[in-house]
């Protein structure tokens, strides 16, 4: 642990949840200035490999502050890989490597002085399969992020309520917060995971096909949630559901990987334009369901 790391920790503990710049001291660049508001995420020239195989080539994308950006494209085009690069989850795969930069409000999250755990705290993630901590209660699930980051707080009740309200789960679980996270239905579990991610006040929330394992009712609830939380957090969502992208997102990026070549962005722009007047014929074919 470097000097700046340990300083950053004390800072986080001392100032409760307001300070999010847990890597601001010393040489590590500041990740967030105020920590409460959303931030812009930008990828510059991202390439990704698994072993020797190049799977993503030169991806540039701006994910604007408090907007919902949808990543669409056929299976295996690198959308999820790209998403995992955005909060440094890509690097936990042993053979994975990458090139390029990802900037959170101008700070490179791959700066050598930046700790991956700090990055992930500011750029949260919701996974394809709901993954609450099954042995923890609903309340402890929501507070898990605070615990992991050693953030002490005297208003945990408020934090739990706020996160669960935002995730649209409060009314269903408020009277049984002590129940185990694993006892909820699939849709509720996924909303619990969203609440858990929101409780640490991330600047960006990444969602990897968050509804693909859920029934239509739960999907609708989560789409509502996404639109509500987008007021205070930047959302990036991978989806296979064209209608979902149309319903929830402000901006859409269309990824494609053809004939074993690495994936790349064919076209990105305001969602309306991508769906109604795409510039590239392949985008038109895909969004109209002619392939993929």
């Amino acid at each position: 642990m470097t000097m700046s790391d340990s300083m950053a920790n004390t800072e986080t503990v001392a100032t409760d949840r307001k300070v999010a710049s847990s890597a601001s001291a010393g040489t590590a660049p500041s990740l967030r200035i105020d920590g409460v508001s959303a931030a812009q995420l930008e990828s510059v020239g991202i390439h990704a490999w698994f072993g020797e195989r190049l799977v993503l080539e030169n991806v540039d994308l701006v994910m604007e502050r408090t907007k919902v950006t949808a990543l669409i494209g056929p299976s295996g085009c690198g959308k999820s890989t790209f998403l995992r690069i955005l909060n440094r989850m890509h690097e936990i795969v042993p053979s994975a490597s990458l090139a390029g930069r990802v900037e959170l409000d101008g700070d490179d999250i791959y700066d050598p002085n930046q700790r991956a755990a700090t990055v992930r705290r500011h750029i949260g993630m919701v996974f394809q399969r709901p993954n609450p901590f099954p042995a923890m209660s609903i309340r402890d699930n929501v507070l898990a992020g605070l615990r992991f980051n050693k953030i002490r707080s005297s208003h945990k009740d408020e934090i739990v309520e706020e996160a669960l309200v935002k995730a649209g789960l409060w009314s269903e679980v408020k009277d049984r917060q002590g129940a185990l996270g694993g006892a909820l239905s699939g849709g509720q579990q996924q909303r619990l995971c969203i609440a858990r991610a929101l409780a640490v006040k991330p600047a960006v929330l990444l969602m990897d096909e968050p509804c693909s394992a859920l029934d239509p009712g739960s999907t609708l609830r989560i789409e509502q949630t996404i639109q509500e939380i987008a007021e205070e957090v930047t959302v990036v969502i991978v989806t296979h559901n064209m209608q979902q992208a149309l319903r929830v997102s402000d901006k859409t990026a269309f990824f494609l990987a053809q004939d074993g070549n690495p994936g790349y962005i064919v076209e990105a722009g305001p969602t309306k334009e991508i769906f109604e007047s795409p510039k590239d014929p392949r985008t038109a074919d895909y969004v109209n369901g002619r392939f993929g």
């Binding site: 993630m125 996974f127 995971c193 858990r196």
Partner: peptide
């Protein structure tokens, strides 16, 4: 230890030691 739980903890900013303590050990 289920990978989902591991990654869930990591995505919340848990260090490796935290993942071991709060996910691997309870499991």
């Amino acid at each position: 230890t289920p990978n989902g739980e591991r990654e869930g903890a990591m995505s919340l900013g848990a260090s490796r030691a935290r993942v071991i303590r709060d996910v691997v050990f309870p499991f």
